[in-house]
Amino acid sequence: MAAKLTVPISEQQIRALKVGDQVLLNGVVFTARDAGHKYMIENFVKGTCPDSERLMYDVLKEGLKGGVIYHCGPVVRKRDDGKYEFVAAGPTTSIREEPYQADVIGHFGVRAVIGKGGMRDKTLKGCQEHGAVYLHAIGGAAPLIAECCKEVLDVYKLDFGVPEAFWKLHVEDFPCVVTMDSHGKSLHEKVRTDSEAKLQQLLAAG
C-alpha cells in the first residue's frame, strides 16, 4: 500500500521512508529543471541574491522548506479564464541536475525530489545529510500525472520558456516510488552494479 505524504514534509517522515516504498504525494510542488537549477545555484546558493531576484528568492525559500521539487517541463494550456492547466506532465531525466541537486536540497531544506532515471553519489549523499528522498515517477506517463496536478497556483520565470519555468502546483495523490532514500540506499546503484557485472559476463562470452 502506498503511504500518503503531504507537504510540508518533516525530517522524521523522510527518515521513515526506505527504497521501494510507494508514496502518494499531496500538496504544493514546484517544477524546476535545467535552467531553474542553474539559476538557483548562481543567484542564491553560490551568489548573493541580486535585488532583482529578491521576490523570487522569498517565494522559493518559503515554498521549498519541507517542500518538493519536480523535474518536469509540462505541456500547458491557458484556459479562457486566464488560468493555466497542465495537459501533460511526466518527469524529465534527473541526472542532468546532479551537479546542483544536493546544494539546492541543503540550501532550501527540500525534502523530496521527483524525477526519473535516478541520480548519483552527490545527490545520494545530500539526501543522507539533509534528510531528503528521491522519488521516481513513471517517465512518459504524462496525461496520467497531469490528472494529479489539480491546480496551477502560479508560474515564475516564464521567460525561461514553458518547459523551464518554475510552475507552482497543487498535486493530489501523485504516485511515486522511493528509489533513493535518506539512509544512503539507491535502487539505481544496485541495478547499475548488477547490470555492469552481467555486461562483463556477456562480453567475455563473446
Partner: peptide
C-alpha cells in the same frame, strides 16, 4: 497512460 492519452487526445509524453 497510453489509453488515457488516446481517449483524451493529450500527448503521451510531455
Amino acid at each position: 497512460n497510453i489509453k488515457l492519452s488516446r481517449e483524451t487526445g493529450r500527448p503521451i509524453c510531455q
